[in-house]
Design a protein around this nucleic acid. Sequence first.
DNA 1: AGCGATACTA
Length: 539
Amino acid sequence: MIRKRPNDRSTNRQQRSSLWQKCTNLRALKQVHASMVVNGFNSNYSAIRELIFCGAMAISGTIDYAHQVFDHVSEPDNFLWNTMIRGSAQSQCPLNAVLLYTRMENRHARPDDFTFPFVLKACTKLSWVKMGMGIHGKVVRFGFESNTFVRNTLIYFHANCGDLRIASALFDDSAKRDVVPWSALTAGYARRGKLDVARRLFDEMPFKDLVSWNVMITGYAKQGEMESARKLFDEVPKRDVVTWNAMIAGYVLCGSNEQALQMFEEMRSLGEKPDEVTMLSLLSACADIGDLDVGQKIHSALLEMGSGDMSIILGNAVIDMYSKCGSIERALEVFRRMRDKDVSSWNSVIGGLAFHGHSEESVNLFKEMRRLKVRPNEITFVGVLVACSHAGKVEEGRGYFNLMRIVYRIEPNIKHYGCMVDLLGRAGILNEAFEFIEKMEIAPNAIVWRTLLGACRVHGNVELGRRANERLLEMRRDESGDFVLLSNIYASRGEWQGVEEVRKLMDDSGVKKEAGCSLVEADNSSLMHFLFDSKPKSR
DNA sequence: AGCGATACTA
């Protein structure tokens, strides 16, 4: 792949940069790396640097690979550190950016004015206020507080998750109050729900650019104020794909999926090109309303658009859409065609198959995944355990539960316990299911007890059912934090439907005392809802 | 030296 042309340096350089440009996915990246090793470029620092830059920045979803390569560099310079921190900050796991920064300090590499904006961005994404404050301290200590970029990112951090007063003070003290810090502050106020302050800032801006408008539109859209958003959208002097995306995402967020799709049509008819973000919103809308037809159309639009391969995240969204729209076959087809996969891709199909009752295939895929050395995560095991539960494979399920804990060192969460109770309960091993709940290391929630209750009913075990019922009522009696907690989790993620669900759970105290479990549904649909109805996450 | 700040996804 790489041919040496010792007499022509400029061609060589050009050729290399075009080579890196052709690197658009993990496979290509690995190929280039391999040929670097073969051709002896592996000790060439500038080649390594480009490789890492490519993995960390140019291609999405390849940051892990960049990490692997980076770990072998004995003395990375600031450019490499910064590139890795930057790439990690914008990845799924921004925590790595902070870890890298710590490593950097421990190795006595001196952070520079490029380093801090990236670390601060990671802190913002993580909403890690304490760490962000600490980094702010470092900024001061290293003397970068007056650097425009660093300062603007500090404003961005404090405005979005820290102290709005600090953000305002930093902004007021700025020598240059141009659009960037102004918009950052505005976005912060909007995100904190202070739309009136945000709007005032927006109106007072001496100069507005496209981003300022997008900030305000997004602010309204995220708070569900779609009328106000729409008003600004109609006023805006110029639109770009982000403007459209903000509107579409806003409609999806408040459940107006039809509006979102309509917006998409309008966008296309006006000649604005949708991008990955657009498609992700739309796919999630389709998955939400279970609209297979439109989902399919989005998928084919995607195939027409894409010059190369779909990104992993987009592929996962397509799989998820098909899976949630009930077409597990198509989900599998897309999965099989996908060249680069990550855990989420596997999770979607393993979970989808399990949910649709294809237990055997689900477990087989899990085995295949392990064979290919893809590390399963906690979500994977929810799928696998559901598959075992469906198929009544008690021993296998127990085995996987232990595999998760012992081999992969994943602490079981409430969903895993729910699966196990369902597994044991369905098989009629009720006493053990009961003991299982009692021995849980985390507090059981109502869904777990209701699952057991349902099993007791199916198997006609009145005595245990009564005890489970008591626990359920107890939980309600002391207004256990569980409901509040669960409902908070839902609310913080904007899943209002989930909140309603919890409210409903709280309302119907489940069961009447003497009636045993007569009011409990026989099927476990609420458990399945609990297990699968959250958005897929990769990590 | 080369990388950098605000908006849309998760």
